[in-house]
Amino acid sequence: MTANRIRVALVTGAGSGIGRAVALRLAEEGYAVAVNDLKPDTAEGAASAIREAGGAAEAVPGDVSDPESVHAFFERAREVFGAPEVLVNNAGFLQQKPFVELTIEDFDRMISVHLRGTFLCIKEALPEMLSRGRGVIVNVASQLGQIGGIELCHYSAAKAGIIGLTKALAREVSARGVRVNAVAPGPINTELVQGLSEEWRRAKAAELPLGRFGEPEEVAETVAFLVSDRASLYVGQTLGPNSGDVML
């Protein structure tokens, strides 16, 4: 797969945080970016920032957990730019809650957005990638999917599922030209992480060998690498820009 063949990228949850940084970074690399977010205004804000910087972008808002919504925003991306050859599954949210207080609704929503959302977007993008014999999928997991997190059981479970899905799918489709990998960031300075308790954030920072949380742009560099030809041997891998929280 050569770099000039990859023209269109679709990034979910790209209105803010890591997703926005990824969308901007891929635009710098010359991709036309379909910017998905649940909130239309934040999706448009990120798309506008890309266009103002001289790139090509289109806001394609929608809910990744809803099959009809996913189909609709992929169709919009196809209409404007063509079928995405790069898919970055980043959409998600955080909820801090002790396990004994978790409701079935809490658990189902977490799995629905993270794991089901990743599944639905791949289902939408993969057939065209396979028919072309090329494509790249990067799933954004979390280091908590590897080690777990206190009061984040449902989030950790959803992210662990994404890592498992990544490995299994990579085994299934890599020989057909589609590379599938994951990124498992540690705590990153985003609105989502800032929404966790100060006690949690202080304790977590103290555990990190690097001594600090990461920035969205640092994660975006990892995604940009996995999308590029420089990562041609990376298959089913989970890269960890995590401040040393997980060392493999």
Rank of each mutant, 00 (worst) to 15 (best):
M1I: 02
N4A: 14
N4L: 13
R5G: 13
I6C: 13
V8N: 11
A9W: 06
L10N: 12
V11L: 14
G13S: 01
G15V: 09
G17P: 08
G19K: 14
R20C: 02
A23W: 12
L24A: 07
E28Y: 02
E29Y: 07
Y31L: 15
V33L: 05
A34V: 12
V35K: 15
V35G: 03
L38N: 06
P40N: 03
D41L: 09
T42C: 09
A46C: 15
E52M: 05
E52R: 04
E52L: 03
A56G: 09
A57D: 05
E58L: 14
A59S: 04
A59H: 04
P67C: 07
V70R: 01
F74Y: 05
E75T: 06
A77R: 04
G82N: 02
G82F: 05
E85V: 02
V86N: 00
N89C: 03
N89L: 02
A91R: 03
G92A: 06
G92C: 15
L94R: 12
L94P: 09
Q95C: 05
Q95T: 05
P98R: 07
E101I: 03
I104F: 02
I104Q: 04
D106C: 05
I111A: 12
S112R: 09
V113P: 14
V113Q: 07
H114R: 11
T118K: 04
T118Y: 06
F119E: 08
K123T: 14
L126F: 12
L126V: 14
E128Q: 15
E128H: 15
E128V: 15
E128P: 00
L130N: 13
G133M: 07
G135L: 04
V140H: 14
V140F: 14
V140W: 14
Q143E: 15
Q143P: 04
Q146K: 08
G149M: 12
G149A: 11
L152A: 06
H154G: 04
H154R: 03
Y155P: 05
K159N: 07
K159P: 08
L169N: 01
E172G: 00
A175Y: 08
R176E: 15
G177D: 07
G177H: 10
G177P: 08
V178M: 01
N181F: 03
V183A: 13
I188M: 11
T190C: 05
E191S: 06
V193T: 12
V193E: 09
Q194E: 12
G195N: 10
L210C: 08
L210K: 08
F213M: 07
E215T: 01
P216L: 02
E217A: 03
V219E: 00
V219Y: 02
A220Q: 03
V223C: 00
V223N: 00
A224K: 10
A224Q: 11
A224I: 08
S228Q: 09
D229C: 00
V235C: 07
G236M: 07
T238S: 13
G240M: 08
P241V: 00
S243H: 11
D245Y: 09
D245T: 13
D245R: 11
L248T: 15
